[in-house]
Write a protein that binds this DNA or RNA. Structure first.
Lengths: 192, 192, 192, 192
DNA sequence: CATGAATGAGGTTTCATTCAT
DNA sequence: AATGAATGAAACCTCATTCAT
């Protein structure tokens, strides 16, 4: 057990280091040696846990994406009105962005650069299903605008990423009040 | 004259090559040698026009940002209603994203990674002034929600970036109809 | 007993794996980890049986060389005519090359690259004594050309190595008929 | 001109260093850094002249093989008896082995290990044509044994490689007298 | 002004070997 | 005796930058 635990610890330390360093410098500007140093292992050790750098980042991505989805949809229950359901999910996403901002930054980088390879990206997309189903229901009930999910996502969910990145850059302070304003804007943009 | 002209041509070729290569591979995965080759120039020549790689990218960024702003605000006239003004600006932004998507991709990369250094990024921000003024007027007139400009931007402007990137990835086709839907969502999200 | 037996099995598995992998990739392109894997053993275990990689290869070489000599000279009896004696030995060598080609390839690699260290190489040379004695007798009897043993070896024995390697590369098919032709060439080259 | 000459010099220095180092240690035990040092260039410079290590060795092989063939067949004239023609070629090969033994060692290494890739090996084989034609004529005239060219080569040409390698190892001294003895053995082995 | 050649520094990855268990 | 995990050293290779021409 001790040995296994140590291995898991090392793997986690590597994932953590990857997230932090990639957040600050991007994929290509983050050398394996730095990741190793931050995780307190030898560079060679990384290759016991991951095939290569790309694999390390892919696995980190999928792990973080899973954390994100677990967090976002844990509190969600299908038996609510569309608006309530959306509010619950949206607020969880906002909370994740605030509380786990390292994770949020990382996912953002992944979504905006050719850092993650196609298969892992595809794998990461399926996680949104519950939200898509909710929107589907909303369209059928005439509560949500009958437009592409991409547009709904672009206007109601993605702006949070922009705001969180602005906050990271120190340009913007995301307060409680802002969250309510943001939610209103999100809902207004997609509601019929 | 011939000499000077030639120089400008070379500089432009370098900027163009930078945009294309960075769009496809990102900043750190784009070697100077490739930029030089694509611009039909020796690597050493780059350093006659730019201090170093960072400077090349910064200058490219500012140049593209200028093209963007020039295009976006050229048709704008302050003497319109807030809604009309916003629509004009928004549609120009959408048009730029569609017609000059190479430029749009590049600006997006710049906004989402630690590729551009802080000074250049700061420099690039001031360009939005006319839109900010319009929003200010809108807030005073009670037409626009009285919230931070960052939130207004996040919900009404930034989603276009998300959609254009989704289109680049081939996930989404941005049609004429979509543009109208998107504008509606944008306006709904910020109007009072 | 069980313990000792097990050890010998492991050692043999390691020698076998070494031969196969070195045959296919050469000494320096064969990592210890692969040898261990093929022998179903931990890399660390190798070092219980051998001092280091060089020692592993040296020991493998001497072991194979012994198998070779045992096979080649087993049927040999000094009380024959020189020609008959030579034919017996030659045919055994040819048979070894055909039937135990893995061993033959390995010996060949060892003879042609700086893979084996000098002491082991020296050790491996003495095995040929019976053949050298036969040639000595042949020279005294005026049956064999009075030339250096190196020349006799180069022309009557070594060509088999070349042919067997050509066969391994798929360039040449070594049939029964070829063996007789080859023997004739061998004998013609050294007989007076 | 000066520049071009310098480039050619550098390339030649690299080929020379490759030959010497590979001769002494083998392909996989010869790091690029050592080759660079011996050629008095930076490791990075190697990659201006060769794509990678494999390419460096392949090109070296082909270059040396060409030197070999040029030397061997330069004095050869088709209008001779088979025996005389063979003697001329054989003696030239022997001379090459003696005088350019670095080249000869190198070719030998190449022929006996998986160092050279298949395409280059194939490329290197065609060089022997004149000898094969001579043998063909010899068979038709009933002067040469009617056996596979591989066997003829194995017995009449390849032994020289063995002897030259033995000499390199210091086991055997290849004198003028030896050459005549060796030629006789070679001819006896293939003549009818 | 323009360049091709050159390189030092540093990137990712491999591997022979060791060590705690 | 046996091992899986770990690693320092070194392998191949790339690239931003410089310099002689």
């Amino acid at each position: 057990m001790a040995k296994l635990q140590k291995s898991i610890d090392k793997r986690n330390a590597l994932l953590k280091a990857t997230i932090e360093l990639v957040n600050n410098s991007g994929f290509h500007a983050t050398p394996m040696s730095k990741i190793a140093k931050m995780a307190n292992v030898s560079p060679a050790t990384i290759y016991l846990y991951f095939e290569n750098k790309q694999d390390l980042v892919n696995q980190t991505y999928l792990e973080v994406k899973t954390k994100y989805t677990d967090f976002v949809f844990k509190a969600y229950d299908e038996n609510t009105s569309v608006k309530t359901g959306f509010e619950i999910i949206w607020k969880r996403i906002a909370e994740f962005n605030s509380n786990e901002c390292e994770y949020a930054f990382f996912l953002n980088q992944c979504n905006n650069t050719p850092m993650i390879d196609e298969p892992s990206r595809k794998e990461g997309i399926k996680y949104l299903q519950p939200l898509l189903h909710l929107w589907q229901r909303g369209k059928e009930e005439g509560v949500i605008k009958p437009v592409s999910d991409y547009i709904l996502y672009a206007y109601s969910i993605n702006p949070l990423s922009f705001l969180i990145m602005a906050q990271k850059r120190g340009e913007f302070q995301f307060t409680k009040a802002h969250i309510d304003e943001a939610f209103l804007a999100a809902w207004d943009s997609i509601k019929l």
